[in-house]
Simulated scan of single mutants.
Amino acid sequence: MKIKIIGSGGCVSTPKPCCRCSVCTEARVKGVPYARTGCSLFIEDGNVLIDTPEDINLFA
């Protein structure tokens, strides 16, 4: 079975969509490791996404 960890940054992704706070603004400018996605897992053999956050479209 082939498994890919798509995000492991925590339960809240940063930057949040449309948020203009200082933390989210800094994360947009600096990128990784300041920017992080929420937890998610992809099982390639069955094309299954598990615990997918709202920002999954960043990987499309």
Rank of each mutant, 00 (worst) to 15 (best):
P53Y: 01
V32N: 09
A35Q: 11
N47E: 11
S8L: 05
Y34S: 05
G38S: 02
S8N: 15
G38C: 01
I50Y: 01
F42H: 09
V29T: 13
K2P: 15
S13K: 03
S40Y: 00
L58D: 13
M1I: 05
G10A: 03
I5E: 02
R20A: 06
G7N: 02
A35K: 12
E26V: 01
V32F: 12
G9P: 15
I6G: 12
A27Q: 08
L58W: 13
G31Y: 14
D55R: 14
I5M: 05
F42A: 03
D55M: 09
R20Y: 05
V12T: 05
K2T: 04
V48A: 13
K2L: 09
S22A: 03
I56V: 10
Y34G: 03
E26P: 11
A27H: 03
I50A: 09
M1Q: 07
I3E: 07
G38K: 05
K16R: 15
G46Y: 15
V29M: 14
D45I: 01
A35P: 15
T25W: 05
K30G: 08
V32A: 08
L58N: 13
S13Y: 00
P33D: 02
V23Y: 04
V32H: 11
F42T: 01
L41M: 14
A60S: 09
F42G: 02
P53L: 02
R20F: 03
G9M: 07
A35G: 15
A27D: 04
C18N: 14
R36T: 00
L49Q: 10
S40H: 06
T37F: 09
V32D: 07
Y34V: 00
D51M: 10
G31T: 05
I43Y: 06
G31V: 05
E54W: 04
D55K: 08
D51N: 15
G38R: 02
R36S: 02
E54K: 09
C24G: 01
F59N: 08
V12E: 10
T52N: 13
A60V: 06
C21A: 02
S13L: 00
I6E: 12
E26M: 10
K4P: 02
C21Q: 05
R28S: 07
